[in-house]
Simulated scan of single mutants.
Amino acid sequence: MRAADEAALRRVARRRARQDVQRKERVDVRYSTDEKTEILAEARRLGLAGAHFVGAIVMAHLNGDLALPEQRTPVDDLIDEYAALREQVSRIGRNVNQIAKRLNEGGTTHPVDTAVIAEAGRLVALVQDTVKVVDTAANVAATSRWAA
């Protein structure tokens, strides 16, 4: 699965809000055994119930937030690639923070630790700047998509 596709699924599936009353209306859909297995596996991977996952995807499509593959535009792909890139860069920042925390916790230090902590701080700042740039680019892409 492409990073953009994964980001789109996560964005859409998490957006469906709870309602004050239980949803009672049903739409029956038939899937092959293999299709059902794939749907449930993906829902589980995203931490969602199968019905919530399918409902979120359908409602996102109806609301114009998720296009069918043949309806996607290059801007949709760009927005989702930015979301995936942001997550990857954020993970780097978290790893650098964990390294810096470990080195700052004390204990026996080595002469190189000071240089490693300084470099970790520089990397965290670089990651923060990168995330801001990615967020700005994603906002510009999203704004241009809705303005079109």
Rank of each mutant, 00 (worst) to 15 (best):
Arg86Val: 08
Val21Glu: 13
Arg91Gly: 14
Val75Leu: 10
Thr114Asp: 08
Leu46Gln: 15
Gln19Arg: 14
Asp76Thr: 08
Val116Met: 12
Asp77Thr: 09
Arg45Pro: 00
Thr37Cys: 13
Ser32Thr: 14
Asn95Asp: 10
Leu68Arg: 08
Leu103His: 07
Ala83Gln: 01
Thr114Glu: 07
Asn95Gln: 12
His61Tyr: 11
Gly47Met: 03
Gln71Pro: 00
Thr37Glu: 12
Ile57Arg: 05
Arg26Thr: 15
Val27Ala: 09
Gln88Asp: 15
His110Ala: 14
Lys24Gln: 06
Leu40Met: 04
Glu70Thr: 09
Glu38Thr: 12
Glu42Gln: 03
Leu66Asn: 02
Asp20Gln: 00
Val89Ile: 13
Tyr82Trp: 05
Arg44Thr: 04
Ile39Thr: 12
Asp28Ser: 12
Val54Asp: 03
Asp20Met: 00
Arg26Ile: 13
Val116Gln: 10
Arg72Tyr: 01
Gly93Trp: 03
Ala118Arg: 14
Glu81His: 06
Arg30Asp: 03
Leu48Asp: 07
His110Ser: 12
Thr109Ser: 13
Ile117Asp: 15
Gly50Ile: 09
Val21Tyr: 00
Lys101Val: 06
Asp34His: 08
Asp113Ile: 09
Glu81Ser: 12
Ile92Phe: 09
Ala43Val: 03
Gln19Tyr: 02
Gln19Ser: 14
Ala120Phe: 03
His61Pro: 02
Gly107Phe: 02
Glu119Ser: 15
Val96Gly: 01
Gln88Trp: 06
Glu25His: 03
Pro111Gly: 08
Gly107Met: 04
Gly55Trp: 02
Leu66Lys: 05
Ala115His: 11
Val112Lys: 13
Leu46Phe: 14
Gln98Asn: 08
Tyr31Phe: 15
Arg91Ser: 15
Phe53Arg: 01
Asn95Gly: 13
Glu35Asp: 12
Gln98Ala: 12
Leu62Gly: 00
Asp65Met: 01
Ala120Trp: 02
Lys24Thr: 14
Ser32Ala: 10
Gly106Asn: 06
Asn95Ile: 11
Ile92Glu: 11
Gly64Pro: 09
Val29Asn: 07
Glu105Gly: 11
Asn95Tyr: 07
Phe53Thr: 03
Val27His: 08
Leu66His: 11
Lys36Leu: 10
Ala60Pro: 07
Pro69Leu: 11
Glu119Ile: 15
Thr108Cys: 04
Gln19Thr: 15
Ala51His: 11
Ala67Glu: 10
Arg30Tyr: 04
Ser32Leu: 11
Asp28Lys: 01
Ala100Val: 13
Ala67Pro: 04
Tyr82Gly: 10
Asp77His: 06
Ala51Trp: 10
Val96Ile: 07
Val54Ser: 05
Gln22Tyr: 03
Leu48Ala: 09
